[in-house]
Design a binder for these strands. Structure first.
Lengths: 175, 175
DNA sequence: AATATTGCTATGGAATTCATAGGGACAAGG
DNA sequence: CCTTGTCCCTATGAATTCCATAGCAATATT
């Protein structure tokens, strides 16, 4: 006979919200494609709703829901950037900023194993601290120090830059 | 007037499958909670369907679908571990193995920002190459070398070990 | 007064997920 | 050979989430 009561409860070992596994716990917060893309935009300096929507290509509900959840989870803080009309920008908290190594690791894997080599690197980082190219890892290729976002000088591949500009145009075009 | 034709096509800048952004491209493959948990299990040495199902707590369809997709995406290879009856185990390819830094980064962020300190670290790694504790980063705290999965000696926190054993029991209990 | 800008919310249908149940292929024990 | 057990999935239907499209509110601009 099959089990009759299998609903998940708080004490259920199948409930991952209290799992001791740090990966499972992290995934409960960021285990979603749009969430990661929203964070990517915040790391790349886009703080406004419309920009995030345009670059992630998500629907406005998806963006609104993710930003709301990220705020509830403490990764994002909303700050007004205009009083009249009242407009909010979205900014990373310390907890959100600490997510950067995950983005870097995803970037490295994506560049190496998902993109084709002929597409070239999309982003080149220079490590402001030591002045050398930072490479693809999570620590600087030149000096060995862990890479923090604010120490990086970003240079976009021209094709990738065009792609991002094209999304802004496409977004404006059907507003 | 609103735009009339907004379906996404191959040339649409909103189609991320050909985006030059490595993060977006990576997320198309691994931007899913169950997928990441399946990979975690493969990294932790569980290669059989039932084990993966028990530890991820996903439904069998979810596990089957994710494994199938991971195989199609080249991260996982299926190998028979028994001829009669014919049974397959799931193993990481080079591409799948290269995903380890992302798992490490998620682990670091999860341990530091999602779990409460009193829960303690769930996993402690010793770097076999240098013999020292590897720490929480993606490079060894002791020797500075990037951490590869096969160079790590794993020590599970007793409470975390019990949690994993409890999931095996719970799984058997309602089979 | 008319139009544009920005940041969302509303709606309905399509797709996905989940809990639960079951099935096929074999092995082992009686 | 007949039942019971193991392992690896597949089937089903209900609940949930997602997406495309449309629209609204509060201003600023002309």
């Amino acid at each position: 006979m099959k089990a009759t009561v299998t609903k998940r409860t708080a004490a259920d070992p199948r409930d991952l919200t209290r799992s001791l596994c740090p990966v499972a716990r992290a995934e409960l917060v960021v285990g979603d494609r749009w969430t990661v893309l929203v964070l990517r935009e915040l790391f790349s300096g886009n703080h406004r709703f419309e920009q995030i929507q345009a670059q992630t290509t998500a629907t406005p509900q998806m963006v609104a829901a993710r930003l709301k959840q990220l705020e509830a989870d403490g990764l994002v803080q909303r700050r007004p950037y205009s009083e009249r009309p009242l407009r909010y920008g979205y900014h990373l908290t310390e907890k959100g900023d600490a997510f950067f190594p995950v983005i870097l690791a995803l970037r490295q894997w994506g560049e190496t194993w998902v993109k084709s080599p002929k597409e070239g690197l999309s982003v080149n980082y220079t490590h402001a601290t030591c002045g050398k190219p930072a490479g693809l890892g999570t620590v600087c290729e030149g000096c060995g120090q862990p890479l923090r976002r604010k120490d990086l000088i970003v240079a976009l591949n021209p094709a990738y830059k065009r792609e991002r500009e094209a999304r802004v145009e496409a977004f404006k075009a059907n507003r």
